[in-house]
Amino acid sequence: MKDKSLFNRVFDTSNIIILLLIALVMLLPFVYVLSVSVSSYSEYMSSDFYLIPKTIDFSAYEFIFASDSFIRSIFVTIFITVLGTFVNLVLTSTLAYSLSYKVFGQRVVLFMVLFTMMFSAGMIPTYLVVKETGLLNSIWSLILPVAITPFNLIVMRQFFMNIPGELCEAAKIDGSNDLQTFIRIILPLSKPSLAAFGLFYAVYHWNNYFSAILYLNDPALWPIQVILRQIVVVNEALSTLGNGQILLENAPPAETIQMAAIIVATVPILIVYPFLQKHFAKGVMLGSVKG
């Protein structure tokens, strides 16, 4: 018993050390990006790599927040994330609940859902569909084509099937119709699952930029990830964000502007995660097995 207890302690300690090392490795790039974003021009130019800046300089943040286009892109992204996640959860949950019962055409609909999991139309056919439906250069082009994710639908359907049918039968005896049963009984019991998939959908909408590049021609509708791409990849930090408000020769280095933009685009979704973390694992696992 003593040897087993000692082995367990050594094993647990080793796991903790390994996980801490992995966490440090994962955290290191983020710390570096944060440090560069608050560094002065002289310190950035004189040092190749550092994690703690000697002096704190927020000029890069002041520069990007002086841009109307950057501020507008933040609000556009928040709007897309909130509205898109709401649409995703409403459509996914209602269809999953409908398919959790034996209804007419259930197998056909399930086959269509599973078919889209295995075969994708591709970029060009999807673009033509968005164009012909009049969604080009519209916020809805980033929401409706991805309104339902097949994998999330299947898992949520399995979660609804695990809810005891007696609850729904009791509600119907009390005079509740299907919609009232869904809203008053099923949804309150599904909070962990809704929180988990809501986080999945929200992260997707917040980080999505490729669809915006394809479907949005108006820069006023660009989300923050597209602006971030222009800054980091295309390297248009000064010309895109300056807006004539700050002289280029007085602007911070382009690299610090890039790092500041990355921090601003990343931090909001990181703040949301801790509030949903307690439901995250439970919500995913509840629909993964039946029993």
Rank of each mutant, 00 (worst) to 15 (best):
G242T: 12
I213W: 06
N207R: 04
Q230G: 07
T240M: 15
V233T: 06
E236L: 15
P252D: 13
A254G: 08
L199C: 03
I186R: 05
S211P: 02
M259F: 15
Y215P: 01
D178P: 02
L228M: 03
W222I: 00
A251I: 15
P188W: 13
L241P: 05
A195N: 07
P223G: 05
S239E: 12
A220W: 01
L189F: 12
R184H: 13
K191C: 02
A202F: 09
T256C: 08
F200L: 04
I227G: 00
W206Y: 10
P223Y: 11
N250Q: 13
A220Y: 00
I183A: 05
V203T: 10
L187W: 09
P188E: 08
E255Q: 14
Y209M: 12
I185S: 08
S239I: 15
I231M: 09
N208H: 13
P253A: 14
L228W: 13
A251R: 14
K191H: 03
S190L: 10
G242N: 15
V226K: 00
A212C: 03
T181H: 07
L214H: 06
W206L: 04
V226I: 07
L247K: 13
S239K: 12
L214G: 01
V234L: 10
I183F: 13
D218T: 01
P188S: 11
L187C: 06
S239F: 09
S239M: 14
L179Q: 01
G244N: 13
F200R: 08
N235W: 12
M259N: 14
V234Y: 12
Y204W: 14
N243R: 04
A260K: 11
P223A: 02
V232K: 06
K191Q: 04
Q245I: 15
S211V: 05
S239C: 09
L248H: 09
A196G: 05
E249W: 11
L199K: 04
N250H: 14
S211Q: 08
L199I: 09
A254T: 11
V226C: 01
L214E: 10
V226M: 01
I183T: 11
G244D: 07
N235G: 06
Q225R: 09
T256F: 13
L221D: 00
P223K: 00
I186N: 03
Q180S: 11
T240N: 15
I227M: 04
I186P: 10
L187Q: 04
K191V: 11
P188M: 11
F200N: 06
S193N: 02
A212N: 02
A251M: 13
D178A: 12
D178C: 12
F200G: 01
D218R: 00
Q230M: 07
R184K: 14
H205R: 06
S239P: 03
Q245Y: 15
F197C: 01
M259S: 06
L187I: 15
L221V: 00
I257M: 13
A220L: 05
S239W: 11
Y209C: 01
N207W: 06
A254L: 07
A212G: 04
F210Q: 04
R184N: 09
G198C: 06
N217W: 09
L241M: 10
Y201W: 12
F210D: 00
Q258I: 12
L189I: 06
F197D: 03
L179T: 07
L247A: 13
Q230F: 13
L238T: 09
Q258H: 10
L247Y: 15
L238A: 07
Y204D: 08
I224G: 02
N243K: 08
Q245A: 15
Q225N: 03
V226H: 00
I183H: 07
P192D: 06
Y215D: 02
